[in-house]
């Protein structure tokens, strides 16, 4: 109850202050959800929020090299905490969770089960090692190796089939959407209403799946820290979380 009151008070103060121009750096997987969330936030507060969506590792490099932004939302901790230690951003607050999934072009039967990933000649596209989605993918493969159900060299045989390592997860999904790749590992949330009619989703067993936790925080160099904090608070509010759930994310633990 108190939390809710505090939140309302915060939103009210934010809206009573002069409208601010906010720049939010956000992981590519947040593209659709944050675009809608940003519109709702602007409508409520009168701010003008602009987004820069890219692979979190690209955003991190840009921020390290002095890019001006107010809020940073990363798809994993590895691309977030180095900025905290450098004093560039406030400690991350986990605001949303995501899961991995396998997708394949609708009319392409090459991938039916998880085991097909190792079939020689299959064209698999994943995220680059530094891209959070690519990192989660490799962890998922390692988890399958450890379980042993598919053989201890499952990940080695799967990685042999990788034909491209993309620099953000939306580019990974695009390669399947265009029908160029036989299969791809993306986030469950990347199967947007636009993509859904074009692909088949092959769910991953939950014991192998990864718990992708997204941190968010206000940048120390923000020109409008109050409005930036209001955005972070809005993302965590009931209204913000509802929009994120609508796009397939789950709430933080």
């Amino acid at each position: 109850m108190f939390k809710k009151l505090a939140l309302t008070a915060l939103l009210l103060t934010a809206s009573s202050a002069a409208a601010a121009n906010l720049t939010v750096f956000a992981a590519a997987s947040l593209t659709d959800a944050f675009t809608e969330l940003g519109r709702a936030f602007d409508a409520q507060t009168g701010n003008r929020t602009a987004f820069s969506f890219a692979g979190s590792q690209v955003l991190r490099t840009q921020l390290e090299n002095g890019a001006g932004a107010d809020v940073y939302a990363s798809a994993n901790d590895a691309q977030y905490s180095p900025l905290v230690s450098k004093g560039l951003v406030a400690a991350g607050q986990a605001f949303v969770r995501n899961k991995l999934t396998l997708i394949a072009p609708k009319n392409n039967p090459a991938l039916k089960t998880l085991n097909d990933l190792t079939r020689p000649g299959l064209k698999l596209v994943i995220g680059d090692r530094a891209v959070p989605a690519g990192d989660y993918t490799r962890r998922m493969l390692a988890a399958i190796d450890r379980a042993g159900t598919y053989g201890k060299d499952f990940s080695a045989r799967t990685l042999k089939n990788v034909v491209s390592e993309e620099t953000n997860v939306r580019q990974v999904a695009l390669k399947v959407q265009l029908g160029e790749a036989d299969a791809a590992v993306v986030y469950a949330t990347d199967v947007t209403p636009t993509l859904k009619p074009l692909v088949r989703v092959i769910p991953l067993p939950s014991r192998f799946n990864q718990n992708a936790s997204y941190p968010i925080g206000v940048l120390k160099g923000s020109a409008s820290p109050e409005a930036a904090q209001a955005f972070v608070t809005y993302v965590q509010s009931a209204a913000g979380q509802q929009i994120l759930r609508k796009w397939g994310f789950s709430g933080p633990q």
Binding site: A130, V163, S164, K175
Partner: peptide
């Protein structure tokens, strides 16, 4: 190139693609 050929080290990742993906952990 990045659209048509993808990006895989040692196969299709040219100098420019490599510069872009190296802008990650290690500059």
């Amino acid at each position: 190139t990045v659209l048509f050929a993808g990006s895989l080290q040692g196969k299709t990742r040219t100098i420019t693609l490599s510069i872009y993906s190296a802008l990650e952990s290690d500059l």
